[in-house]
């Protein structure tokens, strides 16, 4: 099994990765291509609320926003999903009925993952029963960092099984894995164990999604596709608050994985404030005027 890094995963050079990112991010996306990118970015958002103070009221408001992003402006897509804590899944499911918007739930003792496996599996089964279309699990970083890759891998495989038909996103919490070599190895482990998506972060640890981490994960996805023919999705989460960042990530996807991944089926942004910035940019592109936050709802 996976024990030695060298035998399983590609090594990653940090500086080379940063330079590649800088080159990708220097693309200049203007005019029509920008409008197109902004619409695409909206449709890829997992609108997220993951706070201890979340209530059914808050979640309902967010769900309404998900399908009514900015009603005064026509032709906007809905976001891809709402991402909530397990207890909020029934609320979200009901609120989103008929919208086509998915309900994603974090699970497996999010965000730390510090619970025994059975408790995690029970939680997963419970959110799926409650109607979650997507499950965002966290890997056991402590086990990973002490080299227990097999444990991490088995855990993912069991969660995948518990998911049934629900899509599994595996959160690596890259901010705790620290090195890109670890990010790559964890990506490979997660995909081999059955992840439908790999996801950078919980949003509770800093740094969350960094461009180098995202690029490393995209390249892991590419290699996995070359090896197996399977297309795994990608979800950077946390730290992406501006339209500019979102467009830069779309450039990164396009130039690493190609147009196939430019779809909510294979790429998501985990973010709470991104949607409004993208909306402001869309309106600006249309009207030519820079926008004020006062004109965009903040659910």
């Amino acid at each position: 099994m996976v024990k030695s890094k060298n035998s399983t995963s590609q090594v990653i050079d940090q500086i080379g990765t940063q330079e590649r990112v800088a080159r990708l991010f220097s693309r200049s996306i203007k005019k029509e291509s920008k409008v197109q990118a902004l619409h695409l970015a909206l449709s890829m958002i997992d609108l997220t609320t993951l706070e201890g103070k979340d209530s059914s009221g808050k979640v309902k408001q967010l769900c309404y926003k998900a399908s009514h992003l900015h009603d005064s402006f026509s032709g906007l897509p809905n976001v891809a999903a709402i991402c909530v804590y397990p207890t909020m899944v029934p609320v979200a499911k009901k609120a989103l009925e008929g919208t086509g918007i998915n309900v994603a739930s974090v699970a497996t003792a999010f965000p730390s993952g510090m619970a025994d496996l059975q408790a995690k599996l029970d939680e997963v089964k419970s959110v799926v029963e409650d109607g979650a279309d997507e499950v965002d699990m966290v890997i056991s970083r402590g086990e990973f960092l002490r080299g227990e890759y097999e444990y991490v891998s088995d855990e993912i495989a069991q969660v995948k099984e518990a998911c049934g038909n629900a899509h599994l996103k595996v959160i690596l919490e890259t901010g705790e894995l620290v090195t890109l070599d670890n990010v790559r190895l964890a990506s490979d482990l997660a995909m081999e164990a059955g992840a439908d998506f790999i996801k950078t972060s919980t949003g509770k640890v800093s740094p969350a999604a960094t461009p180098s981490v995202v690029l490393t994960m995209l390249e892991a996805i590419k290699d996995y596709q070359i090896k197996t023919g399977k297309k795994i999705g990608m979800k950077p989460a946390g730290g992406i608050g501006t339209a500019k960042q979102a467009v830069q990530y779309l450039v990164m996807i396009k130039e690493t994985l190609g147009n196939d991944w430019l779809s909510p089926d294979l790429f998501r942004f985990g973010a709470s404030s991104l949607a409004n910035d993208v909306l402001m940019q869309i309106v600006k592109q249309s009207t030519g005027h820079y926008q004020s936050k006062d004109y965009f709802s903040i659910d």
Partner: peptide, 13 residues
């Protein structure tokens, strides 16, 4: 499945 779009960069001279 959502349909994939073909996203090309506009000229940026």
């Amino acid at each position: 499945m959502s349909k994939t779009i073909k996203w090309e960069y506009s000229p940026a001279p």
